[in-house]
Simulated scan of single mutants.
Amino acid sequence: MMHRPIGKIVKSNSHVDYVCQVYNSGETPHPPDPTDYAFGGFVAAELEAHSGVALVGLIYNTLLMNPEFGSLGPRLSPRDEVEIFSPDYLAETATLLGVICIGWFDAQGQAHQGVPALAATVNCPVRLLSTDEIYAFHVDAAGEPQLRYTPLLLAQKHALVAPLLMAVIDRLSELFPHSRNRLAVMRNNLAWKSIVQPAG
């Protein structure tokens, strides 16, 4: 199974809401491409103190950190020369991801949806989930998709929650083609609520 690292945890806003800093060039042999950390992507935060345990999260937001913004003073060197003479300066820019935890894999590889008892730590590595892991995280004993973490997401009261859930449902429709009609009903309901509730 190929694990594709994309970044590390740098802070948390709550027990389930984390900020992941994407690896820059030079921090990893193969820096992630923007498509690797797209909106709605499934990721895992490996808990180093608990071997085999990984929190499962969804990327719901992206923030760009740029210390040059608002700096109107003259530059001492062109940007291409800064890369040569002051490579550390470029590290001040960062891409941060909002990741909401929706469950975990235990040490035996068993998937659990909901709020985990354990929390991630600073510098905890974050990687993409494989397609097989996404399937294993969602499939129930009857072979049907389960979304028990939906109430957890809806409780966040974030403007991007409805589009996030719709992106998840679209992904699951590909993994569970026999359940597309049932998933489509859920998606249509979410789309309708996302239009009606703000207006009400």
Results as ranks from 00 to 15, higher is better:
residue 13 N to L: 09
residue 14 S to L: 07
residue 15 H to M: 10
residue 15 H to S: 15
residue 15 H to C: 11
residue 16 V to T: 15
residue 16 V to E: 02
residue 16 V to F: 06
residue 17 D to Q: 13
residue 18 Y to W: 12
residue 18 Y to N: 05
residue 18 Y to T: 06
residue 19 V to T: 14
residue 20 C to G: 07
residue 21 Q to A: 05
residue 21 Q to P: 02
residue 22 V to Q: 01
residue 22 V to C: 04
residue 26 G to S: 09
residue 27 E to A: 10
residue 27 E to C: 06
residue 27 E to N: 09
residue 28 T to S: 07
residue 30 H to Y: 12
residue 30 H to C: 09
residue 32 P to S: 07
residue 33 D to F: 07
residue 34 P to A: 15
residue 34 P to M: 13
residue 35 T to C: 10
residue 36 D to C: 09
residue 37 Y to E: 04
residue 38 A to L: 09
residue 40 G to A: 07
residue 42 F to C: 01
residue 42 F to H: 10
residue 44 A to V: 11
residue 45 A to Q: 00
residue 45 A to P: 01
residue 46 E to F: 00
residue 46 E to N: 04
residue 47 L to W: 04
residue 50 H to K: 13
residue 50 H to Y: 12
residue 51 S to G: 12
residue 51 S to W: 04
residue 52 G to R: 04
residue 52 G to P: 00
residue 53 V to W: 01
residue 53 V to T: 04
residue 55 L to Y: 03
residue 55 L to M: 06
residue 57 G to P: 10
residue 57 G to T: 06
residue 58 L to P: 05
residue 58 L to K: 00
residue 59 I to A: 04
residue 62 T to M: 13
residue 62 T to G: 10
residue 62 T to F: 10
residue 64 L to D: 10
residue 66 N to R: 10
residue 66 N to W: 03
residue 67 P to R: 08
residue 67 P to G: 05
residue 68 E to W: 15
residue 69 F to V: 13
residue 70 G to P: 09
residue 73 G to K: 15
residue 73 G to Y: 14
residue 73 G to N: 12
residue 73 G to L: 14
residue 74 P to T: 13
residue 74 P to C: 11
residue 75 R to P: 02
residue 78 P to F: 01
